[in-house]
């Protein structure tokens, strides 16, 4: 049953992750995130004054610009922009800075599968770097379903092409609680929720829920990784009081 993947990973094993903060020093916040060979650079500018025409002025507005590695901006990029914008609308606290616009620019440096989840993780790190108030972090993972109904996490480009169906999932990060076990019940129902889910390809409903469960398995390692990477800067920062 254990399908052998090309690079020897197990079904629930992710590719090596790496995240670097404050890469661009002109941007208010920036981060570079890579999962295996897929690398994305995210930059945040904001909050800037004024909202766009049709947006609600009582809330902050988020604008996403997606720059592909090569070629012109087409429908694929517009779809990614829309998904990213709505996902970030979920995690940002929009009431803190009403009537402002925060722009996030995503630049694809290399695409080797799992592009959208990598971009979401990068955007999230860049937002933290810029100091935009967030409710929680977003943790994104992609799962694909093979012909014999086997679920694997974090496929690379070759695997994506050969698979029957693909699911991108975004969850909120796991809670590191200082309270003891009684609070686990509350934590479970909150952690249950998905922020975003996008599927490609035909699969049965049960397979989808299977992928969902597999995806949840990746929340903890990703959250721990992000927490470690995003915390270290603050401790060394002398300008932070206290």
């Amino acid at each position: 049953m254990e399908a052998k993947r090309e690079d020897g990973r197990s079904a629930t094993q992710m590719r090596p992750l790496s995240c670097t903060r404050s890469i661009l020093n002109r941007a208010h916040g920036s981060a570079s995130f890579s999962q295996g060979e897929t690398k994305i650079l995210a930059a945040v500018y904001g909050p800037k004054a004024g909202t766009k025409k049709n947006e609600n002025p009582e809330k902050a507005c988020i604008e996403v610009i997606w720059k592909p590695k090569s070629g012109q901006i087409g429908k694929v990029e517009k779809e990614y922009e829309m998904i990213l914008k709505r996902t970030l609308q979920n995690i940002c606290i929009l009431n803190v800075h009403p009537n402002t616009t925060t722009s996030i620019i995503i630049q694809v440096v290399n695409d080797d599968g799992s592009l959208l989840p990598c971009a979401i993780n990068a955007a999230c790190s860049a937002l933290v770097d810029a100091g935009i108030p967030l409710k929680y972090l977003a943790v994104a993972i992609s799962c694909c379903l093979s012909e014999d109904e086997y679920c694997v996490l974090d496929p690379n480009k070759l695997e994506e092409r050969n698979m029957k169906a693909l699911v991108y999932l975004v969850f909120r990060n796991s809670i590191l609680s200082v309270l003891d076990e009684e609070s686990v019940e509350v934590g479970e129902s909150i952690e249950n929720g998905i922020i975003t889910s996008v599927t490609h390809g035909v699969m049965s409903v049960n397979n989808y829920f299977q992928c969902l469960e597999q995806g949840r398995a990746a929340i903890k390692p990703l959250s721990d990784f992000l927490r470690k990477k995003l915390r270290s800067k603050v401790q060394n920062d002398v300008s932070v009081a206290g």
Partner: peptide, 17 residues
């Protein structure tokens, strides 16, 4: 009754299973 696509593009609320 096969699932062709399930699309929840973010948005302010979370979706429980």
């Amino acid at each position: 009754m096969q699932l062709v696509s399930l699309n929840k593009p973010g948005g302010p609320g979370l979706a429980q299973t």
